[in-house]
Design a binder for these strands. Structure first.
Length: 224
DNA sequence: GACCAGGCACATC
DNA sequence: GATGTGCATGGT
């Protein structure tokens, strides 16, 4: 029953918003950097940080490995939590460097999805959502990304029990959708779009694309 | 000025 | 295992 419900939601969102062309980023490393920088942070601020990295010529695997952490912090300052995130970027680069002598993304590319996920989660600063964003958007693996918007949208439409954790929600999508990275990509992006435009905290949705489904049934019981 | 934004690690109970 | 807190900028 979830399969049909989930595809119905997808259809409504896609009809309203169309393709979202995610992840916004020109290269694999840019996607990974963005995934770390956007932790609990507005994407607009991340874009500024990424622009800084680009103009400094630092948005490459090699330069990110070389640049000192103080410089890196300064470049990513607009993204907030810049000291912590600089450390996290460095942690990722060090992990990458441990994978192959050249420190390229090739070894990751050759690793099976479940193992790669486990390995990413060993990097300090990469939690489930960041790992899954990297897996789906940088490596096109069939992994569903669960974020704040996912909790809020599903919660408000009565599709969650009260204590669903990250893994349970990920499993809900992965078990009930056809295993298609393109679909997972678009679905998560559409949920974010919906969350930004129609599912804000402490505000009832007006003109929500999912209105026909179960109009704010749980509002605000499942507030996130 | 308060609240929010595409989390995560760590301390404490 | 659950709950609380620090991390920080920039837009509304």
């Amino acid at each position: 029953m979830y399969s049909e419900k989930l595809m119905e939601i997808y259809g409504l969102l896609y009809d309203r918003y169309g393709p979202q062309h995610w992840w916004p980023g020109d290269s694999r490393i840019e996607i990974i950097v963005g995934a770390i920088l956007t932790q609990n942070t507005n994407w607009g601020n991340v874009e500024k940080a990424i622009a800084n990295l680009k103009s400094a010529g630092c948005l490459t695997v090699q330069r990110l490995g070389e640049v000192d952490i103080a410089t890196l912090s300064e470049l990513i300052r607009p993204a907030g939590y810049y000291n912590i995130k600089a450390r996290r970027l460095k942690n990722f680069m060090e992990w990458l460097n441990d994978q192959t002598p050249s420190g390229s993304l090739d070894a990751a590319e050759a690793t099976v999805t479940e193992l790669l996920r486990e390995q990413l989660l060993t990097v300090k600063g990469i939690g489930p959502e960041t790992a899954d964003s990297i897996l789906l958007y940088a490596f096109e693996r069939c992994v569903f990304v669960v974020d704040t918007y996912t909790y809020r949208v599903l919660g408000r439409h009565g599709l969650l029990d009260h204590d669903n954790d990250y893994e349970q929600i990920r499993d809900l999508f992965e078990s009930n959708l056809r295993r298609d990275a393109g679909l997972f990509n678009e679905y998560h992006a559409l949920l974010v779009r919906l969350g930004k435009e129609h599912c804000r905290p402490k505000a009832k949705c007006a003109g929500c694309p999912l209105e026909s489904l179960a109009p704010n049934a749980q509002w605000p019981a499942c507030e996130v």
